[in-house]
Simulated assay, not measured.
Amino acid sequence: MRKLMLSTILALSFMLSFSLPALAGSPVKTLPGDITLAQAQTILTAALKKAEAIKVPMNIAIVDAGGNLKAFYRQEDAFIGSIDISIKKAVTARYFNMPTRALGAASQVGKSLYGIEVSNDGLILFAGGVPLVDANNVIIGAIGVSGGSVDEDESVAIAGAAVIK
């Protein structure tokens, strides 16, 4: 038993001695199909421009292909409670690869996805979350917007998403 434990520890040490220096010395690259920071900033800028045009202070969240927060902006006077909502809208849109408005429609009483909002630590099922699809028709992330009416939120999200195509 001791020999097995010692062998396992030595094998793991050997593997780590080769993999960790390689990871530490080389920059982490974005995986194919994932949003870059430059793309996220471009999307964020377009969404902010739309929010300013409609004069509604917004929280705007952008998540990567894995549903992890990549970029976020809270305009002056945007609701604090909408921070979490904007992030969850983006995550919801990415998890299910559809706008949150469409998922909300499919989750009404009597519909096939009724109750889905309690999955994944809570989802947001009203408009304002939109998948981000690049020029190659690959979903690279999602945008979520909150702070106005659902229609205002969705218009800002669509304006941001439109620049990536």
Rank of each mutant, 00 (worst) to 15 (best):
I9L: 15
T36E: 03
S13M: 09
K3R: 09
A61K: 14
L123G: 01
D121T: 08
G128S: 07
E117F: 04
Y114D: 09
I87E: 03
G144H: 11
P57H: 14
P27S: 11
T42P: 00
K50E: 15
V133R: 05
A90H: 08
D151C: 01
R74W: 02
A40S: 10
I43E: 07
N97M: 03
I116F: 08
G81P: 12
I35G: 01
K111L: 05
M1N: 05
A51K: 04
I83R: 06
A47D: 10
L10Q: 13
L4H: 05
T36W: 07
G147W: 04
S146H: 12
I116D: 06
Q39C: 07
P131L: 14
V138G: 01
A90K: 07
I54G: 14
N97L: 03
K89W: 02
N136M: 15
S86P: 04
A24I: 13
I164W: 00
F14R: 08
D84T: 04
A102G: 00
Q41C: 01
A157P: 02
L113I: 08
I85N: 07
A159F: 12
P57N: 11
L123C: 00
V56R: 03
L4V: 11
V63R: 10
A61F: 14
P21W: 04
S17E: 07
Y114N: 10
A38P: 00
T92P: 01
S17Y: 13
L23P: 02
R2I: 14
M58Q: 13
L48Y: 01
A47C: 13
M15N: 06
D121V: 09
V133I: 15
F79I: 05
P32K: 06
G128M: 12
F126D: 12
V130F: 11
S119Q: 14
P99A: 13
Q41T: 11
F72V: 14
L123P: 01
D153S: 08
L10W: 10
T30C: 08
G104W: 06
I143G: 05
M58A: 14
T42R: 10
I164M: 00
I85F: 00
P21G: 06
K89P: 04
I164D: 03
A38S: 06
Y95N: 07
S155Q: 14
S26Q: 09
A161V: 07
S107C: 13
L23E: 09
D34H: 00
D64A: 11
A135W: 12
L69H: 09
M15T: 14
N137Q: 13
P32E: 09
I35N: 00
G129A: 12
T45R: 10
G104A: 11
V145C: 08
Y73C: 15
G122I: 09
V138H: 00
F79G: 09
D34R: 00
L125H: 07
G115K: 13
A162Q: 05
T42F: 03
I139D: 13
L103N: 00
S86G: 04
G147N: 05
M15D: 04
G33C: 01
A105K: 09
S82R: 08
A161Q: 02
D64N: 11
S112V: 11
K29L: 12
N59E: 10
M1D: 01
A105D: 10
L31T: 00
Q108N: 10
N137G: 10
Y73P: 13
S7I: 14
N68I: 13
E152T: 00
K29C: 03
F18A: 12
S146E: 10
L132F: 05
F96W: 03
N97T: 02
L37V: 02
P99W: 02
E154D: 12
S19L: 05
A127W: 06
